[in-house]
Computed example of a mutant assay.
Amino acid sequence: MNDRLIRALTADGRVRVIGVNITQSLNEAHRRHQLSAVATAALGRAMSASLLLASNMKQAQARVNVRIAGDGGLGLVYADAGFDGTVRGFVTNPKFELPPLADGQQNVSQGIGHTGFFKVMRDVGYGEPYSSTVELIAGDIANDVAWYLASSEQTYSKLMLTEVIEQDRDDAPVKVAAGILLQIMPKATLRAAKTANLSQEDLLSQLDAKSDTQKFMDLLLQGKAITEVMTEIFADMHLDILPMSKDVTFSCPCSMERVLAAMKMFGEEDLRSMIAEDKGAEATCHFCGEVYHATTEQLSNLIADLQVVNT
């Protein structure tokens, strides 16, 4: 089943519902970075969150990156996603491990820590990117994202992020990984009171009731697609699936050409040292783990380019 992002409306258009399945993408991230179980879970939640946040942007080239820096052992958890459905990410301490919780879930909150910062940077596709930072309140990412949306964007939101990691599997340990974001549309509570005699408290109570992460995970484990899961959760509220779904893939724009362009920053002296001492150079992309090898000929060409520029 391919990874997919689905957008929908419910409660007569008063609530936005966005769902994403990233099981394959997270397995690819695990393969590339050789993540521990708790690092896999944390990165998966960050990847889901970045995709959900990016889905509300307008430009095809728009991107959102999420940076979670806490005082836990995982260090920085970083995810970058595009409106086009591409996503990538990394954890600075990918081997850090913790025992699972009593219910078998990964202890993401302790892995990230409870003291630190949650930062979101948005590149809308034109002009300068803008960012906003809030303090961590939970470390589980779901509640931290909801807090960020409430404090930075004044949007009431509920977020469900879940994953099942099979630690005895090395090739594809992620059985399921997905997320659902619920958001009240602007001025929705006022319209609700006028059209359905539904108070603000009633609407918030309904969203709280729908935010059942255990039920969400159970439906995924039954093999249901993200669209089916969303439809079942909101069966009594009439879910209107929008024609704006898209495939999700783990993807990184790094390339040998970009690596060589970056290597010019070392300067002629350092490049000559790489040729003489190392017979080339090696670079690893932090975002996807791809390893690039530059030959002595390629480094010599960079030196020649620098000499032309400096003449």
Rank of each mutant, 00 (worst) to 15 (best):
I22H: 01
A79V: 07
R45V: 08
R31D: 10
A29R: 00
G70P: 01
S36K: 01
N56W: 00
G75D: 09
G44P: 06
G13W: 04
A37N: 07
K119M: 14
L74A: 08
T86Q: 11
F96P: 00
E128M: 10
A69Y: 03
V77G: 04
G125A: 12
F90T: 01
Q34I: 08
P99A: 15
F118R: 00
D123S: 09
A29L: 15
A42G: 06
Q59V: 03
R63K: 15
D80L: 13
V38E: 00
N93A: 14
F117E: 13
N93K: 14
A39C: 10
G19Y: 04
G19E: 03
G113H: 10
A54R: 02
P129S: 10
F118Y: 14
Y130F: 15
S55M: 02
D103L: 08
I18E: 01
H30G: 01
Q106N: 04
A54C: 08
L53D: 08
G75E: 05
I112M: 09
G82I: 02
T92W: 04
A29W: 01
A46G: 09
A29E: 00
G116T: 09
G127C: 11
G82S: 12
Y126C: 13
H30I: 06
T92Q: 15
V64P: 00
R45H: 09
V38Y: 02
T115P: 05
R67F: 05
V64N: 02
N21A: 13
R32T: 11
K95G: 04
K58R: 14
N27W: 05
S36Y: 02
E135V: 10
T23E: 06
K119I: 13
V124N: 05
T10W: 08
V77Q: 06
E97I: 07
H114F: 14
D80W: 10
Y130N: 06
G104K: 11
L35G: 00
S50E: 01
V20Q: 01
L35P: 00
E135C: 12
L98D: 06
V17H: 00
Q110N: 13
T115M: 15
D84E: 10
R88Y: 07
K119V: 12
T10L: 11
H30F: 10
L43D: 07
V66T: 12
H114S: 12
V38F: 12
H114G: 13
I112E: 02
N56P: 00
S48P: 08
